[in-house]
Amino acid sequence: MFVAIMMSGLAIGAVYAMIGVTYNVMFSASRVMSFTAGQLGMLGGVLGAAFIDVLGMPAILGFVLTLAACALAGVLTEIVAVRPVLKSLEQHLYVLSTLALALMIQQFVAIQWSTEPQPFPRLLDFGGGGPGDEKFWLPILACLVTVVGLEVLYRHTLVGRAFLAIAEDNFAARALGLPERNLRMASYALAGVIGGLAGFASGQLLLAFFANGALLNFYGFVPVALGGLGNNRGAIISGLVLGVFQQAANFTFGGVFASVAVFAVFIVVLLAAPQGLFGAPAQRRV
């Protein structure tokens, strides 16, 4: 029983964590929190099911195409909902533009795909359904890949360092001659890939369901809020803890009370430590 809760908790937590990272990657490049983060996760599941189950593609091709499409959706977010409002003096316009785009994506999928959850194909047929099933460890694996991949990217590649420079100080980076706009688009593509990966890896767990977008939007945001804006390590740890906490609450209280418990913890932590538990850079106001 403990193993079952831990496995499902870590699996779902890994998905939350990756959506949290998706938020962060977009935020680092543009100082924008985008409502499309959760929708990217939803698209990962829906597109995976569409490519492999409906169109009958081989799993690996479907996987690559899903990530490519999600990267595209990320870039689309940047072009449609972020770039036009970045220059605006109004700090919060991005909340509205990304909310609008997120709603459009969600409604479009609801109408064109289905309002009912659809099956997601089994990929490796490994684990036979128990706590060791692929539906549990695939998200965990994907989360690991994301962590290692980001580490390698940020520490050992030039592009990665440029990302960090942009995240650290936008103006300085531009002054150094970094192609800020291209780097921002690349960041959004990267965010798309991470979100898509989260959705694809959790396809069997969450099914290909349009409403997952809204769900992941919220539960993916909680790790960001707890871990501190832009803090990937904080997001990963908080995400995993959240997943386990939620499953444990599900087990102990069940149903509605688990959601209430998650929400209560979220609000209390947020009010007590608006910068998150792991800290985020303070912003100058004047």
Partner: peptide
């Protein structure tokens, strides 16, 4: 069927074109 999609589109247009 499309009402919420339509609202969202309107919102996007407003934000981008007529803040």
């Amino acid at each position: 069927v499309w009402s919420t999609f339509l609202y969202a589109t309107l919102l996007l247009v407003i934000v981008l074109a007529v803040p």
